[in-house]
Design a protein around this nucleic acid. Structure first.
Lengths: 213, 213
DNA sequence: CGATAAATTAAACACATGTTTAAAATTGGT
DNA sequence: ACCAATTTTAAACATGTGTTTAATTTATCG
């Protein structure tokens, strides 16, 4: 038994697992502190509030993922020709790196983003936009370069469709994995899902624009 | 003032609006009954429990949408050649018909499905599967027919990606509409979003399969 | 009309939540 | 080893939740 982990980290570890599985609002501090084997009050002592804990959990991942993604995107920017597929491939390695935080890090992070995005109090999204808005902007620019036939607005919308498909797949990945196991007798890892997802979202983004209904 | 609406319907109307905007668990019976101008206890009197109210709200839409979709799919089944795009176009009219329940019916229904799907207690999804499983099966079959190059499992996964992109777009449609208004000075209705979505999901589904990472 | 059923209401219930308090335990530096 | 600062702890707090109760009002119909 390694009791070396600080109370603060024990809370972060327990919280991120529960948040990723059940969402932020539906996870209580009592669940978290019970899983972490720490006292209830220690959350407010170390983080101040539940909201601050949520931000801390997300920040631990974003501070690793976002710079890595940005580096990949920068690298791609120097290419003369850019395909949608290349843009999305930039996500793969930064996402994989998150296993250094947690074994299921990539899936956890995407779930966290999904819940953060879904929760109406757009505070978290606005925070992400302010903090990493330039990364998002670079992403949109690249996708537009890869799809000059589209308007900037179409790229905007399709990017959010991509986000929806991604986070949704991750949030409900456990249930879907069970169904796939039952129906197709196939074992798919969280990473396999990404592999299935990327052709899908690339194909969606590359689809031709339509003017009429 | 039309006070003709029954208490039961007043509750349903207020509940579906709040559910669609904030989700099921995050909407309290006190919010619902306050919006509906009825007494708190009347929910349990008329529906028995909050869970039963949720099912009643969903059922009101599903009982209209699902048979209409099934009819469209049946109709398509007689065609010799089937494209992904044709399959998704089957959703359009049944979804539009939901305005007869509520002016924002289409968007509300998709939001409800999104929340129902996301909430871990898969009771609701299982209920939908049991009740309308044959519609889903027909849908998968058609999509597989439209994409014989894919495995049945790939169709399964891509269909869920489609679901994710769709419900996510609807759930966060309000926020995205505001952003689009600010960034592109464009007014997009909930229906416009569907028009932007369909080429995307059709393109994603038609994308070629990939074997390697 | 009057009796019976249905519906509405205000109040309380039991429980879960995030947060705060104040005392106890532990740690770190000299 | 000791004092001061930090951390941990148990308990209570205030508030919000779904549900139930029992009384009252309203509607139904012979």
């Amino acid at each position: 038994m390694a009791a070396r982990i600080s109370t603060k980290d024990k809370i972060l570890n327990a919280a991120e697992a529960l948040f990723a599985e059940h969402g932020f609002e539906q996870t209580s501090l009592r669940q978290i502190t019970a899983d972490a084997n720490v006292n209830l009050a220690s959350v407010n002592y170390h983080f101040g509030s539940k909201k601050a804990l949520i931000q801390a959990v997300i920040a631990r991942y974003s501070s690793l993922f976002m710079p890595a993604l940005d580096a990949k995107l920068k690298q791609l920017q120097s290419h003369p020709q850019i395909s949608t597929r290349e843009v999305f491939d930039c996500f793969r390695e930064p996402l994989r790196e998150l296993v250094h935080i947690n074994k299921r890090g990539p899936a956890i992070y995407l779930s966290l983003l999904g819940y953060a995005y879904a929760e109406i109090q757009g505070h978290l999204r606005r925070f992400t936009m302010q903090e990493y808005g330039d990364v998002i902007l670079r992403l949109v620019t690249l996708l537009h370069a890869a799809n000059p036939q589209l308007t900037a607005e179409d790229v905007f919308w399709r990017l959010h469709f991509v986000l929806g498909a991604t986070v949704f797949a991750q949030v409900s990945s456990q249930a879907l994995q069970e169904i796939a196991k039952a129906d197709f007798n196939s074992d798919v890892s969280a990473e396999d899902i990404i592999d299935k997802l990327i052709p899908f979202i690339a194909g969606g983004l590359d689809a031709p624009h339509e003017n009429e209904i």
